[in-house]
Design a binder for these strands. Sequence first.
DNA 1: ATGAAAGCGCTAACAC
DNA 2: GTGTTAGCGCTTTCAT
Lengths: 352, 352
Amino acid sequence: MRTLGTPEPETAPRTVTIQDVARRAGVSTATVSRAIALPERVAAATREAVFSAIRETGYTPNAAARSLRAKSTKMVLVLLPGIGNSFFTPVLNALEEVFTEGGYGVLIGYTRQSRSRETHYARVIRAGQVDGVLVVTGNVPRDEEFVSVPDTVPVSLMFSEVPGTAQFSVFDVDNRGASADAVRYLISQGHRRIAHIPGAESGLEARERLGGYCDAIREVGFPLDESLIWRGASNFDFASGERAAKDFFALDDKPTAVFAAADEIALGFMRALKNRGVGIPSDVSVIGFDDTEYAVHYDPALTTMRQPRNEMGRLAAQDLLRRMAARDGGIPTSKVRLPCELVVRESVRAVE
Amino acid sequence: MRTLGTPEPETAPRTVTIQDVARRAGVSTATVSRAIALPERVAAATREAVFSAIRETGYTPNAAARSLRAKSTKMVLVLLPGIGNSFFTPVLNALEEVFTEGGYGVLIGYTRQSRSRETHYARVIRAGQVDGVLVVTGNVPRDEEFVSVPDTVPVSLMFSEVPGTAQFSVFDVDNRGASADAVRYLISQGHRRIAHIPGAESGLEARERLGGYCDAIREVGFPLDESLIWRGASNFDFASGERAAKDFFALDDKPTAVFAAADEIALGFMRALKNRGVGIPSDVSVIGFDDTEYAVHYDPALTTMRQPRNEMGRLAAQDLLRRMAARDGGIPTSKVRLPCELVVRESVRAVE
DNA sequence: ATGAAAGCGCTAACAC
DNA sequence: GTGTTAGCGCTTTCAT
């Protein structure tokens, strides 16, 4: 209370601690702590006293002190590639939702293909700043420092896999099988000359999708024509699709259909073709991969292989939540491979 | 060293602390702490001893202990609306980059228009879990708990403003002026009958953009025709644009141009028109707002008003960094309003 | 059912 | 230039 004429004392508004609450409620700090964590183990009257003291003081437990003592920060680190595309937006959404519900905060990190950023985040983990890690990227983390991450912190991988390790949970799709299915669909629509635009081949997913394309071509006995594989994608992005269009126009014997390793590649490719008067799907059919937001809104709406991004995010988060709750690897890691689903829209037509 | 026949002792691999490093280097913990924080204030020989001890032990300072002691977590909270659209992806990218460079981690939170989520994050702030907050959303945070956020934590706003407060830094654009400019451009191309698809009018930005539309129409003396304002957007999304298409088709006297309050609205609208055989821009011109990634790749490429999202992110982060570094409001808040830029592409044609 | 007390790992006065 | 010491705010035995 400020008395008339009395200048406001320069007292810094000291943050209220558990001590203040204890004093006010006439109990010990231990009791306050208990009343918060295990209300049922405190007498009803005491509990009331504590809670009103909390309300009156506006007390909020200090996170750092709690973390220090409890050796748990209630935070997870979500590592994303962080280059451009918005493929990961719904994933991050799902993750944040599940983690927040589970009482965990989400610290994000963009690795940006940079070694120094990876070591930076490895340090974050070693500093005990997070209770778990979710690596959401096509790129297997380059290890070195990463291997020295304490085993006590559970780590999960999404959309890609480190072959031959059981220490991570993995949530991904069968990129190879789904890609083969996409190409098989093209074949079922009568296409025989089918091209492929791979993603950046440094990533496992892109290589798997290329593998699936080859599988499907080979199994029907079509020749595997290298001139129909338009490499050189820098990424899963529009620009890669536009670049591939050059390969298309350079070709004498043009394909009737194209399987792009990602929707954005497909969209960039389609745009480049339309600009030069090539009709889609009248002249060339196109199928993508991912089913991102824009696929359905493009003209023509893109036929594509859907990855269940939201579901994968939810499952991965729930698994990590479970593993974090179990002290010391009480719960084994899981490998979950979800099915993709062909979404037929307008960009593929039947020929013959 | 494991001796033959001796079973591995069940010792938990105790995390290495500053104590271990001190012991190994033959110095006090204070010296280790100093060698890390202010290397120049420690004798070269000692410094070397400390650093090799650190290397040998693989020591990483514990974040919680440091935060508790230093009363600073080196983390910021970035609050996003978290509903669907990927408008914020590049913003988040820019923020993460600048904050990480500045030595801060980024905790994300999606408010999802939910009061309980806002109070949740208010609690995170009060728990001292972050040193600063960036509210990146068109929605002014509903206050209540929020006002009780301690003044010691600097808060900044992006893309929207709380009128009449100096306690936040604000980074936004002149939505009204830029919208008026967009409509003026349409007028300059000979359009006289111009419609508008507003965003969800609960948000300040959407109302400002609507205001700009009205300004531009009025200033040239055109009648302000309510039948040309197609309200009912649930959001800045495709669906809103598709819904607006119904209004378009229901109209006898059709407009020759449409100003959409966001690119995604514009794209949804265009798609719906094209589906019914209406040519863009041959029959109707469309202009958007934002210049998101897909604007340039659509067919026709969308003419739109660009918001400098990356730059706004960088500036906002830098400002917050500065304010967090200054103890106790040493640095005043700023109001930064960046210019938008008209990006002319293919979706508007000149008439007459 | 509750309290006393120890201590999580670190930093920052303050001495020397 | 370096060490001693006193906590930061909380949880958790261990008593009572």
